[in-house]
């Protein structure tokens, strides 16, 4: 899945894999992440990295599988400090993780359904940027919108 170097426009090959026990040391040592990822251990955790720099985790995602409701709940995504805000070097990291969650949801037979319960103030922004729609107090992507995210962020899958 290609990420993009913002300065050069270069496409960067990346991979998303499950977080291993040994990764928690890397996460702590890098000082790139503010959230306490040890707390998320009971959930499904995935990391994204460049294929030529496996030890440098760019972003982490925590998912909760809810099979009885045919959905995956997006509990947390955090992108490393170096790639946030105005100073970021690599783009499309969060979108790639999000699309990976949608892909997992399709693979598990949940029709691409991925839910999120963001702060009210941010709801409209998540809707505009990623195509989430409102379900009560939660947001979700599913079906065509979920497929569109996969096509946009994981085009080579």
């Amino acid at each position: 899945m290609p990420l993009r170097n913002i300065k050069t426009g270069e496409s960067l090959r990346s991979a998303i894999e499950a977080v291993l026990q040994s990764d928690f040391k890397l996460i702590a040592k890098s000082k790139e992440f503010d959230f306490d990822w040890e707390v998320e251990k009971e959930n499904e955790l995935y990391k994204i990295f460049l294929v030529n720099a496996e030890d440098e985790i760019l972003g982490i995602m925590s998912l909760i599988d809810i099979p009885e409701e045919y959905r995956i709940h997006l509990n947390l995504i955090e992108i490393g400090k170096s790639n946030r805000g105005k100073g970021k070097v690599i783009d499309l990291i969060a979108g790639s993780l999000l699309a990976f969650g949608c892909r997992l949801s399709f693979a598990r037979g949940y029709f691409g359904f991925l839910s999120l319960h963001p702060k009210t103030k941010l709801i409209e922004l998540y809707q505009n940027k990623y195509g989430f729609r409102q379900y009560g107090r939660l947001l979700a992507v599913e079906e065509e919108a979920s497929k569109a995210l996969i096509q946009k962020y994981l085009p080579n899958e």
Partner: peptide, 16 residues
Amino acid sequence: KTYTDEEIVESFFFNE
């Protein structure tokens, strides 16, 4: 304190 709302949405998904 550091990021605009747009920048937060580009780098974080966290629950209420």
